[in-house]
Write a protein that binds this DNA or RNA. Sequence first.
DNA 1: CCCCAGATATAGGCATATCTTATGGATGTA
DNA 2: TACATCCATAAGATATGCCTATATCTGGGG
Lengths: 283, 283
Amino acid sequence: MDVRSLRYFIAAYEGGSISAAARRCHVAQPSISTALVQLEERLGTPLFERHRRGITPTEEGHRLYPLARQVSEDLDAISRLFRTPAPAMPVRLGLMRSLGASRMTALLKEYIGQGDNLALTLVNPEERCDARIIGEQDLSPGEAFQPIWHDSYRLALPSGHPLGLQGTVSLADLDGLPFIWRHPCAAMQQLATALSDAGVRCQVRARLRTIEYTLGLVAAGVGASLVPAWPEILAHPDVQSRPLAELEIRQTIGVAYPAQQTMPALIPLLQLGRAAWEARERS
Amino acid sequence: MDVRSLRYFIAAYEGGSISAAARRCHVAQPSISTALVQLEERLGTPLFERHRRGITPTEEGHRLYPLARQVSEDLDAISRLFRTPAPAMPVRLGLMRSLGASRMTALLKEYIGQGDNLALTLVNPEERCDARIIGEQDLSPGEAFQPIWHDSYRLALPSGHPLGLQGTVSLADLDGLPFIWRHPCAAMQQLATALSDAGVRCQVRARLRTIEYTLGLVAAGVGASLVPAWPEILAHPDVQSRPLAELEIRQTIGVAYPAQQTMPALIPLLQLGRAAWEARERS
DNA sequence: CCCCAGATATAGGCATATCTTATGGATGTA
DNA sequence: TACATCCATAAGATATGCCTATATCTGGGG
């Protein structure tokens, strides 16, 4: 028997579905599926009941779980045992504003877990730092770039707003529209340029920095705004979003780091970034 | 990290050499060697010091050993957990006399460990049984045969005996020689036939059944005898052995079992036998 | 003094295991 | 009805492990 299948089992048990386990383990769904079948054959008993909305552990699955955790964690402990407690590699990471809290914390959690005793300091991307999570357009000369996510921006409207009746919204529709401006943001800059080119002016009702506040004001009906198409935004109950017709506003976000002589402590971050990027490309 | 390399580590630690670990794990020596190197790289520390006569664990090796045992045994425990306690498959195994205690117990130990709750009964090979460990020449019709070991027989002499001065001993040298006869034994029969064909007669000083007693008498200087070339015999301090010149006495020992409809409980035994046989062919 | 035996390390070829992509079936949802 | 989600299966590509052969080193025996 193999710990690999045990780890897959753990992820499936905790995630409640095979697909979730695949995402968590950074592998494709069939890998988990077949590994679980093999494990069940090996143990001679079914471990999950499969249904449409996921899987539920059987009696035996519940019994196996704590044992599998035990073995898996013991193995991790062995890995750590001999790592000379690296003297807390300091890494200063510059984070661009409005990154999407959930995906960013997930990435940092994995990075910290995988890296070798990191002392992570988070700063603004303008400050001195070892690497920066920024949009590709803000790259400095001499920096290399590992893409991680790709955001497309959409117009956010209060639910029930008449523009929501259209599938897409054209720039001209924004003329005179109450608008909430967010700054600094490359996407907003792009929109500003396009609007002035088109001779369209909207009413700026507020200027602020964070996406969370912006969403709140949009939901309250203060005005429209431009937001990235993150799942947690698309799912917001009081906000609807529509793509802009003439203008496709996109931004690639990733790790910018000095091109020569990559700091070793950064390597796991770059690997995680690449994994996330390639997973996105596949789907 | 993989339990496979941990198991190899355990075998190397306990065996005191990489080659010994390879023999115990039924794999070739380079497999262990490279796996250990990879494990050391993974943990970032050397685990053994290599020298010509084997390996000795480093400080870290000693620390790793109990942990590796823990993980390996936990994993085995999981394997066993869900096996429905099979209702004690009874297996009657007929054992030919003079098999070589050490290798036979090693085989049986592996068989019991691998099989599924066996109730093993050891009997003489003439009695009714499910399978027999016998020499190939004693096969009954309708039995299939899986070879395990190949024995070549040599003349055993008390150390210091004048015939020991010759590299090989011819049949004629045995004329009048004090001899210890062992029975039943196919090799002895072969020798008896050859002697009578050559018109040579030796003095039979004793007749007995077990190899252990025979060796004792040879060591005591009572006479010579014919014994298989097992390591523990070749290494005996008071006995020297020489091949016979004209007559090569050999015997293949293996599992004899009913050719049709193999009992499932026998399958692990056949697999172990084949593994041992193939390992012998390689060396 | 030379050669052999026994130990470990390395290189190349091969088989198997694992992963990915593509696809189908089933079911709840807009 | 179309769609999204989830699981299972098949087929092709890739990786990993294993084996054979070989090289190096060392101690022992003739």
